[in-house]
Nucleic acid binder design. Structure first.
Length: 474
RNA sequence: UCCUGAGUAGCUCAGCUGGUUAGAGCAUCUGACUGUUAAUCAGAGGGUCCGGGGUUCAAGUCCCUGCUCAGGAGCCA
């Protein structure tokens, strides 16, 4: 019989020797230097740090070098009378020069990182010449052109760490809840949803291939094999979108669950998003602080979230006098009551979310405006069993999902209605021929989630090298 | 694709109804300063005013055109 051993249950000696063994066997070659995040444990000791010059100030015979090494910042102090040679070298240092500094750690309130190092040895790896990004204001275009360097700044560093934590939370959540990771293909033969514009590329003698805009159909097939699966990877949309919440290449995580109805789907989405937000709060306090993020807003992201049907949302819009701008044939615009059947745009979503401090799920949209694979509500065939999750603070849609159509006749009808090539979907129809079951899933946009949690103004800040309509480099 | 706005020093910007040799702050270089936090002080260098065409005695400024970028819409995660 298998017994799960937790560390507390192990004999202490064995446990600690295991840890020692692990560290000894994997990290000895890293012991030639320390990292700034270790400094609190190294006060009074002589350490060697490797890093880059983040800032340099001084006053007469005293020089302060703010060193960053990726794990934090540390102020290194050089005093001329101690060593003329080191002082001259330190004086010649420029922004972002790479150096190795050896010295003794001292706790000091006046230091930006809380710790000072009195420099005893200074080695220059390379002297940077005219680093373009200064500690002053810069425009977006300039920063985007220098994205490869911009990533070194405090703010971008913090965002990338939060992104990494969101990714980890996503994987932990599904891995720990009985889901199997399944990688869907990136090169696909045709459109998944049949609507979006796709990036096209040549594929040997087989004609064209397209970069995937969703792994969903493959996730559905895999869910019939594994029960509960998720795919997580890059997706591509060749839409000419130019807003602060669109990228042409972004990461999306798509869970797909056999035997889940729409309510199960929404419950999972809530639990999932709550987990991500709380995980980041727990593990990235420092980074959220560096970003000046109001964490009291994130602390409120606890279940249950708000929920309303599309029909209720339309009623709310009309009761609250949120009008729809309608273009007339003569070019003028008039304001009308929001008509049932029209899809929500950004103004409607923003108006609805203004009243909420945590996410809201809107469900049962008109089937006309939703994708072909979404199941219609048995109680009202005019609406699809679809749901979107909107995040507060103007973050907008972060999740789109649905219960899938599991009846083969109805699915074939939808494919015809949407004018999609039936033969391309034969394999997908097989899933309804051989043991079809009710099933559901959703997709969560990684960058939109990170943008919301980090409080970034623009989605381009939360991808290390964002791909946008008018920018593909660096 | 549509609507709106912008392009002046390495960076961020000012430059009025067209009028001497186009300015400031930061950055760079030189010097001063023993606790700086975007240090301060003194001095120096730094310009294809996005490209092309036009109007004018005279264009950074006005007109046309091209390019680049930004914000928004639609589509969506």
């Amino acid at each position: 019989m298998a017994v799960a051993l937790r560390p507390q249950q192990l004999n202490k000696t064995i446990f600690y020797s295991l840890i020692t063994f692990t560290i000894m066997s994997t990290t000895p070659r890293y012991k030639s230097y320390q990292r700034i995040e270790q400094l609190p444990q190294l006060v009074g000791e002589k350490v060697t740090l490797n890093g880059w010059v983040a800032n340099k100030t001084g006053k007469g015979k005293l020089l302060f070098i703010v060193l960053r090494d990726g794990t934090g910042i540390c102020q290194c102090v050089v005093f001329k009378p101690n060593s003329e040679e080191i002082f001259e070298t330190a004086k010649s240092l420029t922004l972002e020069s790479s150096v190795q500094i050896t010295g003794t750690v001292r706790s000091d309130e006046r230091s930006p990182g809380g710790f000072d190092i009195d420099v005893e040895e200074l080695r220059v790896f390379q002297l940077a010449k005219d680093y373009p990004i200064t500690p002053k204001d810069h425009g977006v275009d300039f920063l985007m052109t220098n994205r490869h360097l911009w990533l070194r700044s405090t703010r971008q560093h913090a965002i990338m760490r939060i992104r990494a934590s969101v990714v980890k939370a996503i994987r932990d959540f599904f891995d720990g809840n009985g889901f199997t990771l399944v990688d869907s293909p990136i090169l696909t033969p045709a459109a998944c949803e049949g609507t979006s514009t796709l990036f096209e590329t040549k594929y040997f003698d087989l004609g064209s291939a397209y970069l995937s805009q969703s792994g969903q159909l493959y996730a559905e097939a895999s869910a019939m094999a594994q029960g509960r699966v998720y795919t997580f990877g890059p997706t591509f949309r060749a839409e000419r979108s130019k807003t602060r919440r669109h990228l042409t290449e972004f990461w999306m995580v798509e869970p797909e669950m056999a035997f889940f109805d729409l309510n199960d789907d929404m419950d999972l989405a809530e639990e999932f998003v709550e987990y991500i937000v709380q995980y980041v709060l727990k593990t990235r306090q420092q980074e959220l602080k560096a970003l000046d993020r109001d964490i009291t807003k994130l602390e409120k992201v606890r279940r249950p979230f708000h929920r309303m049907s599309y029909t209720e949302a339309v009623e709310w819009l009309n009761n609250n006098n949120v009008k729809l701008d309608k273009k007339q044939p003569d070019g003028s615009t008039i304001q009308i009551d929001f008509p049932w059947g029209e899809d929500f745009g950004a103004p409607q979503e923003e108006a609805i979310m203004e009243q909420f401090e945590k996410p809201c799920i809107i469900h049962r949209y008109p089937s006309e405006v939703k994708a072909f694979y979404m199941k219609r509500d048995p109680d009202n065939p005019k609406v699809a069993m679809a749901m979107d999750m909107l995040a507060p603070e103007g973050a907008g849609e972060i999740i789109g999902g649905s219960q899938r159509e599991d009846n083969i006749e109805l699915l074939e009808e939808r494919i015809k209605e949407h004018d999609l090539p039936m033969e391309s979907f034969e394999w997908y129809l097989d899933l309804r021929r051989y043991g079809s079951v009710p099933h559901s899933g959703f997709g969560l946009g990684l960058e939109r989630t990170v943008k919301w949690i980090s409080g970034a103004e623009h989605i381009r800040e939360v991808a290390p090298f964002p791909r946008m309509l008018y920018r593909i480099a660096p």
